[in-house]
Design a protein around this nucleic acid. Structure first.
Lengths: 227, 227
DNA sequence: CGGGTTCTTGACTATCTTCAACGAAAGTGG
DNA sequence: CCACTTTCGTTGAAGATAGTCAAGAACCCG
């Protein structure tokens, strides 16, 4: 899951339907904290996330970390490059996946329909990452956090009275490492939005979006509008 | 072309050989300043860069710009997502490309070998972009500029006596927009490296790398080592 | 050679990070 | 089940890095 405003809307109508042969390919459930794979591992399968949340990370030698993406239902994770995984992948919330052998992606003949689905998923991934570049390269801290909440709201938010509720299963460190910030800055940005009545923070891991338009505005770089 | 240290070495030995049916697919030359496509255009062809340099950009509503990638020989540009281009693409230095119809990527049967090559290029693109995330999210200005020069040196540098020479056909603004910095900061970082005798700046668009190890060190976050 | 653009440099400012302390939440063991 | 410990999140103050604004130098093009 990447976080951007412009193209996210396009993703809404389009739920990937990869369940064509679930039992044949094999489904599995992973508990929180489990690793699906590590950077450098040879790729054996791709995973279609059915429920739960995954975390894809990369590390720099000195320990600096970048969260590359969060894997939400509908996402495909584990694309190989030169046959290898290029991130670590672990589980934030117990996750059900359907696994497909790498050959389905790389050999069209085995299952043409599925091959096509996985290819399209890879292409969407490229476009989503391009959007994410804009965020990391060109957005302020407040804009990043707002973009993040907005995208999550669109993607996995639930209705909550007249508002929208978003669950944040990941830690503040994860959010920071995803957005290229520090936890302190993430925290301050959230506080700022709370004080402007854009969001309410029920529980540390649950945010209610009180004024979606204001949030969207912030994510696009208009300052904070008071309630 | 993305700029990162860890996986770049893997790219060295592997020159994509897409010239199987060049005349059938059609080659073309574009002059500096020409646009190959715009964001939002329907994708009709993919382009394999044979010579020259392309620039892929995305814009934010308020004019902020991100250079997504530079297209160097060996790169494939123009991957569709939902059938559309998600960046603008224009020419920095007169460029020769070989164009392939989109159907080659999306329909494996038309040309299985070429389909395979394009698919692998897309997968490498994903891995390269993941590396670039680390740079935009977690590296300092000096590290980014050093990483950029290092990657260019590996990829398109020429031997120049005992050293290596790199041509920078793009403007400082382009470099800044690629690295998520300002031109001033790029300029200062280059000056800093010049004063530390890591590089020499012959002509504005030509850098000589005097101490490659020092450059690599800087790109990985060890400070500047004086000569 | 001249005019316009691009690049560099300097001084100042803003934003984000760092360091530090405190409070809240969650996990552990009696 | 509660006290204890540890982790995680928030807040504040100080500091650093990169950005902004402005001027001058180098370069490019006609």
């Amino acid at each position: 899951m990447y976080v951007t405003i412009p193209t996210e809307k396009e993703a809404l109508g389009r739920q990937i339907k990869l369940g064509t042969k679930p039992q044949a390919a094999g489904g599995a459930t992973f508990k929180a904290g489990a690793y699906l794979y590590f950077e450098g591992d040879p790729v054996e399968r791709l995973y279609a996330v059915k429920s739960g949340v995954l975390r894809l990370t990369r590390l720099l030698l000195d320990g600096r970390r970048q969260v590359i993406a969060f894997g939400y239902p509908g996402d495909i994770v584990g694309f190989p490059s030169d046959g290898l995984h290029h991130t670590d992948c672990d589980v934030l919330v117990e996750t059900r996946v359907v696994a497909y052998p790498r050959s389905v992606l790389e050999n069209p003949k085995a299952d043409p329909l599925l091959h096509q689905e996985l290819l399209q998923a890879a292409l969407r991934e490229i476009a989503a990452m391009q959007d994410h570049f804009l965020m990391l390269g060109r957005k302020s801290a407040a804009e990043r956090v707002a973009s993040f909440l907005h995208a999550l709201s669109e993607r996995v938010g639930e209705d909550f009275g007249p508002c929208r509720r978003v669950s944040l299963p990941m830690s503040r460190v994860d959010i920071a490492d995803f957005l290229g910030l520090t936890t302190e800055t993430v925290s301050r940005s959230l506080t700022q939005m709370r004080k402007a009545n854009v969001i309410a923070i029920n529980n540390i891991h649950t945010v209610v979006i009180l004024r979606p338009e204001a949030l969207l505005g912030m994510s696009e770089g208009h300052g904070i509008l008071a309630a």
